[in-house]
């Protein structure tokens, strides 16, 4: 049986702020198998970006990452920076949300695509150029020779995101982390980029962790999805099951309003961003203030992530299909009258 490509155990990200520590991500664990596309969904402030960047220890110096991240069996978080660099860009590529600010304004896009290859493969710029041109044309960029010499500000948003993707794919990584790859783009471009990612997904053996607040994008691309709320994973499952039968009240509200995901924020009562500081995190379930089905036990202790239903194949392992963090499903006892819609 194949081993998981990425195994995250009890990942935590704490940001040091003047007001004290802020736990952006708390105790999340998951696995990604080769060739699998997994979505990580949540609203802004849910910790999804912090979680994805912390996998490569890329959070700012104020962010402290705890827990274990095994990539191909190696715990990369305990590696010294020098060795961790060999994973960044080479084994794991990252696509960022806003291609304008995440591309260096004073370097040509050619240099920015070629540099990881020169760094990791120790090849000449001339050799890297060949591959950069190939990548750009694969991304559907015509006239790649000319584009190589251009600067980010000369490109349109869609082309910039394609450049960003070519950059992440330059060294043929085994895992691609795509942090909101379509959020900064307008709708028509969003679909082009989704199509592009779908094509990449079919052509390469790469696994993808797609971080998004857009359930529709996730539905287009992913096999499996994890829903985050307030720094915790609240539900996981196959993409079809999640849409057909959402268990957690939060997931249900997301699915109900999909595709216009933004509306959840105003449909749900309470603050927009879940919690900004440690002191704001309530005892008990983190979703209690916005939940329509809140009961007394929800305010007592926090429910654990419970495995639900039968086992099945996830990636290449035989394990539980679904997990949910809600008191309604604790103790494995699903009473009939409480069965969700």
């Amino acid at each position: 049986m194949e081993k998981p490509l990425l195994e995250v155990k009890d990942l935590a990200v704490n940001f040091k702020r003047e007001e004290g520590f802020f736990k952006a991500v708390e105790g999340i664990s998951f696995k990604i198998w080769p060739r699998e596309v997994v979505g990580l969904v949540g609203e802004s402030g849910s910790g999804k970006t912090a979680a994805s960047l912390s996998l490569l220890n890329l959070t700012s110096s104020r962010g402290k990452v705890g827990g274990e991240v095994f990539f191909d069996g190696v715990n990369i978080l305990t590696l010294p920076e020098r060795k961790l660099k060999k994973f960044r860009g080479r084994q794991i590529g990252v696509i960022f949300q806003e291609p304008m600010t995440f591309l260096n304004p004073v370097l040509t896009i050619g240099v920015q695509i070629m540099e990881p290859m020169v760094e990791h493969w120790k090849i000449s710029w001339g050799q890297a150029r060949e591959r950069a041109l190939y990548l750009l044309s694969e991304m559907g960029i015509k006239d790649s020779e000319r584009r190589m010499k251009e600067y980010p500000h000369q490109l349109s948003g869609g082309i910039r995101q394609r450049v960003m993707i070519s950059m992440a794919l330059a060294c043929s990584p085994r895992l691609l982390i795509a942090d909101e790859p379509t959020t900064a783009l307008d709708v028509t471009l969003q679909y082009q980029i989704i199509e592009l990612l779908r094509r990449i997904r079919e052509k390469t053996p790469m696994a993808i962790l797609l971080v998004s607040h857009d359930l529709e994008v996730v539905r287009e691309l992913c096999d499996r999805v994890m829903i985050m709320y307030g720094g915790r994973i609240v539900e996981t499952g196959g993409i079809r099951e999640i849409f057909k039968d959402p268990l957690h009240p939060y997931t249900r509200s997301l699915v109900e309003v999909s595709p216009s995901f933004e509306r959840v924020a105003w449909r749900l009562p309470g603050e927009d961003a879940p919690f900004s500081y440690q002191s704001n995190i309530p005892a008990g379930c983190r979703f209690q203030h916005r939940c329509s089905r809140v009961s007394r036990e929800c305010k007592g202790a926090e429910p654990s992530l419970k495995e639900i239903g039968g086992k099945g194949w996830i990636g290449n392992s035989f394990s539980f299909h679904r997990q949910v963090r809600c008191w309604k499903y604790q103790e494995g006892a699903l009473e009939k009258d409480e069965k969700p819609l």
Partner: peptide, 29 residues
């Protein structure tokens, strides 16, 4: 603090490369 420095780090570039190619060129302006 800029986002593109995170990108440079995510590419696994060496500290000196990041400093000379990405930081100083922008700080020179």
């Amino acid at each position: 603090q800029q986002d593109y420095i995170i990108t440079a780090r995510a590419k696994g570039l060496g500290d000196m490369t990041i400093l000379l190619r990405h930081v100083l060129r922008n700080a020179a302006l």
